[in-house]
């Protein structure tokens, strides 16, 4: 068993594959937090056309499988339209396109969590702010969003963990992350199937479970007591 483990880690660079997974997850998380917040701001803004755009975008994108989005960005955006996002080699281009697709998809869920968070802020808070003469940007940026963020840490943690798991779908456009390596390994080392699966399963448990536990604890800590 120890020999087998040593053999697998010697022959395949498992750590490098998980490092790609982590990079995909972190970069996409930053991107989708930004784009998701922008979408949420549009979704509650006083301009009807922005509200409409955000609603259509969210309903369309979150009902499309991530697989279709990623395959579409690789085969459609890159190989048909020639969008490379300044990447030079194929691996580089697919890595960047995977982040683009993950951001486009995950930001829908970020937006929906934020919007439900905005709904948990008491109406009196916004009313008081408006009574003081704050404008829409100030009401949202100084009063509502800071309180909303505190109540959405739990849901956002769920979204980020789902994102970490979703990075495996980048294997469909041959990004060399964990699931792609696992596919090669189970094909080549069929006799070590269980060991290979255990390695990758625990890799993901190791990435997702602490995030859930820590952020779950934080969300309880900072929750607005009402």
């Amino acid at each position: 068993m120890v020999d087998d483990l040593a053999f697998l880690f010697d022959k395949y660079n498992v750590v490098a594959a998980f490092w790609v997974t982590v990079q995909l997850a972190v970069l996409s998380a930053i991107g989708s937090l930004i784009w998701g917040t922008a979408l949420a701001a549009m979704r509650v803004s006083p301009v009807p056309i922005m509200r409409g755009f955000a609603a259509v975008y969210i309903n369309a994108v979150r009902n499309t499988p991530l697989t279709v989005i990623l395959v579409g960005s690789s085969l459609g955006l890159w190989q048909t339209l020639g969008v490379t996002l300044a990447g030079e080699r194929a691996t580089e281009v697919n890595f960047r396109l995977a982040i683009l697709g993950l951001v486009a998809y995950t930001s829908c869920f970020v937006c929906e969590s934020l919007r439900s968070g905005i709904n948990t802020v008491h109406v009196g808070q916004a009313e008081a702010a408006r009574a003081l003469g704050l404008n829409f940007g100030q009401v949202l940026g100084r009063i509502v969003l800071p309180q909303a963020f505190r109540s959405v840490i739990g849901p956002l943690a769920s979204v980020l963990i789902a994102l970490t798991k979703n990075t495996t779908i980048a294997a469909a456009i041959s990004v060399a992350e964990a699931a792609a390596l696992m596919k090669t390994m189970v094909e080549n080392e069929a006799h070590l199937l269980f060991l290979v699966t255990v390695i990758f399963a625990f890799g993901f448990v190791f990435l997702t479970l602490p995030t859930g536990l820590i952020l779950g604890w934080v969300s309880k800590k900072v929750a607005v007591k009402r």
């Binding site: 769920s158 979204v159 963990i161 789902a162 448990v205 479970l209 995030t211 859930g212 952020l215 779950g216």
Partner: peptide, 8 residues
């Protein structure tokens, strides 16, 4: 349900 985190 949509996106449920383990551990929570």
């Amino acid at each position: 349900v949509e996106e449920q985190a383990p551990g929570m």
